[in-house]
Nucleic acid binder design. Structure first.
Lengths: 159, 159
DNA sequence: CAGGTATTGATATGTTATAACATTATAGCT
DNA sequence: AGCTATAATGTTATAACATATCAATACCTG
């Protein structure tokens, strides 16, 4: 159960590697990683934290890739649909998927202090939530699992 | 593990009983269940589904209890803070707590067809998410656990 | 290259949420 | 009762998040 996000790592290769995987996935699935979409994914990967749609839009706009909200929302819809990014509902913000290819039904740990977000690959729908759903006869299609709290770094900083 | 929400029940007494419990809780905690707050809770309880802040505001406004957004948001903040209501992040909407007094860290089952919401009293932070957090050294303060899917009634209706 | 589908461009608007500051009510104290 | 600190409400304005709509263009495929 790896929890990517609160540990230092080789960020440059993490970005490049994920972009490469995304390209391969698009090629194999007949999806089109257009310039705006590609650049949006790149930005989310580079930031490595949850970004609001308008934050993304601001960056895209500076680069001449579109200046209206639909540009950002369309790119984000595509990335989320393709599994390259996730929406953090508790923040109304978006983050690149940290486990491209493996993780669906992700769970997030959100630091309220530094705003960093870690993606855990637990499968909550198979745990107690799944039990409760089965018992009630409810069929789960999508889960939102987000925990807000304090990350290790911020705990140390406060101590 | 009761999952209130997808079963018929005596709704009138459920509303009255919960209001009564809320009053008692406020009295014992020195909280003030003012007219707007009380009425907001009543409305959420009566609707028995997630209501947007502006839905609530519309009802309050018709009754002369305030016409501006902050009125609704303040009432909702109070109710959420007191544990009388929860925010459903996936819907940006609010629902009365179905287990007043017992449930913190609730989990929700949201039907995308009929929009009904059931509240399960599983304790997700103690499950796999808690394991992942502990492993990462993350301290959880609040959890958002929501599953979207199809409730039993809507499955039957579709069959 | 014609025709359908996906994508982008652009304008406008809808929805959700909060900042800021003035005013009024309440509770506790003397 | 009168004073004072705090909590709650009234009000205006605006910030932040998201989508509908329609026109124009790019792209695949037969």
């Amino acid at each position: 159960m790896s929890t990517i996000g609160f540990a230092p790592h080789d960020h440059k290769s993490c970005v490049a590697g994920t972009l490469h995987k995304a390209e391969a996935h698009c090629a194999s699935q007949g999806l089109r990683l257009t310039p705006v979409r590609r650049r949006s994914l790149e930005i989310l990967l580079a930031e490595h934290r949850a970004l609001g749609a308008y934050d993304l839009l601001g960056i895209l706009a500076k680069e001449g890739l579109g200046a209206q909200p639909p540009v950002a929302y369309r790119a984000l819809d595509f990335l989320v649909g393709a599994g390259f990014a996730h929406k953090i509902e508790a923040l109304n913000a978006y983050i690149a998927c940290a486990h491209l290819g493996t993780c669906h039904m992700p769970a997030f740990l959100i630091c309220r202090s530094c705003k960093s977000v870690a993606e855990a690959d637990t499968a909550p729908a198979q745990g107690r939530l799944g039990d409760a759903a089965r018992e009630a006869g409810f069929v789960i299609e999508r889960t939102v699992v987000e925990a807000e709290g304090i990350c290790p770094q911020c705990q140390d900083a406060a101590a």
